[in-house]
Each structure stands twice: as C-alpha cells, then as structure tokens.
Design a protein around this nucleic acid. Structure first.
Lengths: 157, 157
DNA sequence: GATTAGTTGAGACAAAATCTCAACCGTAAT
DNA sequence: ATTACGGTTGAGATTTTGTCTCAACTAATC
C-alpha cells in the first residue's frame, strides 16, 4: 500500500538528535554547537532543503554560522548516516532528513518532491545485484511526472 | 531477470539520429550542424557523459562548438525526449542516451554508473500514483552501493 | 587546567551552469 | 534563387554552487 509520508514530529526530532549525538561520540567526532544547530535546522525544515536553504534558515542565521560550516556539517551528517543526500535532474543537491526506506515523486513542472512509502519495493525485495559483484546499500526510486496542481494548470490552458 | 545493458550499436545510433531529426521538424526546431554533432557525440560516448565531457569530445572540439551551445543543445535534446538527464548525489548532472526503461547501479566509492534492466520494475508495474493526482511519466531506480572493483580494494586494506 | 586534535569563519577560489547580445543561419514563403 | 524572419550561435561576463586555506578557537580527554 503506497502512502505519502507524514512530516517528522517533535518526538521523532528529539530521538534523531540524540541519535546524532550518540553517533558523533562513537565516531570520535566532537559535538559542536554549530553541528547541533544544523541538525536541528534540517529536521525542522520539512521537505528536502538545499544547503543554501539550511544556511538561510533562522536558526543558522541567528547563530551566525558560516556557509562553509553548513556545507561541512551537512556532509558529516551524511557520513554518519543521520541524513541522506538526494539529487534530481535540473535541481541542486538536497538533503533528506528521512531515513526510513522511501521514494520520491518529483514533479517535472514545479520541482516539488513528495516522499512516498512503497513497501513492495524495498531493500528486502532487492537482494541480488551480487550477480554483478555489486553490494547494494541503498535503493531509491525516482518517479518523475506531473503533480496534481500542475496538471490542473495544464488543463486550464 | 536482471541484466547489464549492452552499449548502443551503430544501427541504433543511426535510428536515434533520424528520430532526433524527425522530432526537431515536428517541434519546428531548426536542425543545425551543432545540434547534430552534439547528438552524435552523446550517442558515441557510451555511459552517461557530463556536459563538460561532451564539450571536450573530439567531434565537438573539432567543430569548435561553444560551451553555451553544448549546454543548450543537450537541454533541447532532453526537451525533445531524445536523451534524459540523470543526477546522483555527489556528482554533476549527467546525460543518458538510453531511452528504454532501466535503472542505475551507482558506486558510492568510485562514482561509476552501470545501466541495468529489471523488467520486474517498470512503468507497467507502477501505475498508481494517480491516488495522489500524480501522473507518472518516468521511473528510475538508483541502487547505491559498492561495485566489485571497489569491494576488492576495500578487502585488501 | 593543560594538551591535542579536530572545527570554525572569512574570504579567496574553483567548478558548473546560465545569461547577454550582436552576428549568423535554417526555414519557408515568395 | 532571393528574401525575411525567428531561432541559434559564440565569446565572455555573470551567477550559482561548492570547496579550500589558514589562523584562531573549542570539545574531549586526562
């Protein structure tokens, strides 16, 4: 059963930040204010922010964190597996705070990206690229097309 | 049955160029030498070239085609549906001359992208994002992991 | 509190992509 | 074949996106 994923709630956010701190300790990476603020910002911004959008977020602006640090923090978050990177044609790199297996509906008109779950296509159903000596660590599906709003606009024309 | 896709052969290349010319005429887009050379270059370069690699290709260099024109031509090829754009995290935009439904095995170590066919996941099996008012036009799967060569290197360490 | 190794900020730098505009060229009508 | 027109091209400036450098700073550990 396919479904659109709900936004990340406060409880989940707390858990994710704690998880981040744990992974930092495990990896021997110092936990700085800057990194903490960047994680919070990403989790607060529902829906795939770009690095620049994170940089422009109120939290990050208020703390006067530099652009370089935002890029570096985001990269370390990816390294630690706290967030993932997503990239769709014609768009810049975006960060995705969602970790559970999910896929992206990308609108070719307006660029909007919607998270969907489709348990029928997950890691468990994609075991065997080992035929090619390839070890699959992640599977993402891009469904590209036109969203409801843009279809309505097209019809009017 | 999953399989790695074979390179585009000469016969297919001819057909694809003819197809491109037909679509240009239909869309009322003038057929220039530059565009013709760019299509040929892309079809000759097996495996997902970047705009810059196309710009650097022998055909394009020989014809002294400008960088701007290469970018513009590639974009018009995408518009006409002659090639597609692909983008994987941590990498620049790449162009994909393959039109048949297929997916990408992306190596997280070396960045190599391999085309694979998996008929069990195609348009025909993905009908129903219409629940969300979304009209699916294309479906791409990214399988990210580590390729055989990089796994061997990792083991040695 | 001292030590150490990793982090930060500011701005320079690099890479990727787009824009500008005058000159040019394909196309189709004549 | 000629002409008129609109789209295309090239060169280089510009913008956008991301990385690098290095001195000053700070988290973590003892």
């Amino acid at each position: 059963m396919k479904r659109i994923l709900a936004p990340i709630n406060a409880e989940t956010k707390r858990r994710r930040i704690a998880e981040f701190e744990r992974r930092c300790r495990e990896a021997g990476i110092p936990m700085t204010d800057q990194r903490r603020i960047v994680v919070e910002a990403v989790l607060d911004m529902h829906c795939h922010p770009t690095a620049d959008q994170v940089y422009a977020s109120s939290q990050v602006r208020r703390a006067r964190i530099s652009r370089a640090t935002v890029y570096r923090s985001l990269e370390s978050l990816v390294m630690l597996g706290v967030i993932t990177k997503a990239c769709h044609p014609g768009d810049v790199v975006r960060y995705d705070a969602r970790l559970e297996p999910h896929h992206h509906l990308v609108c070719l008109e307006c660029g909007e990206v919607v998270d969907i779950a489709d348990p029928s296509i997950t890691m468990t159903r994609l075991p065997d690229m080992s035929v090619f000596g390839f070890e699959v660590r992640d599977c993402r599906m891009q469904l590209r097309g036109v969203c409801r709003r843009c279809r309505r606009k097209e019809k009017k024309r």
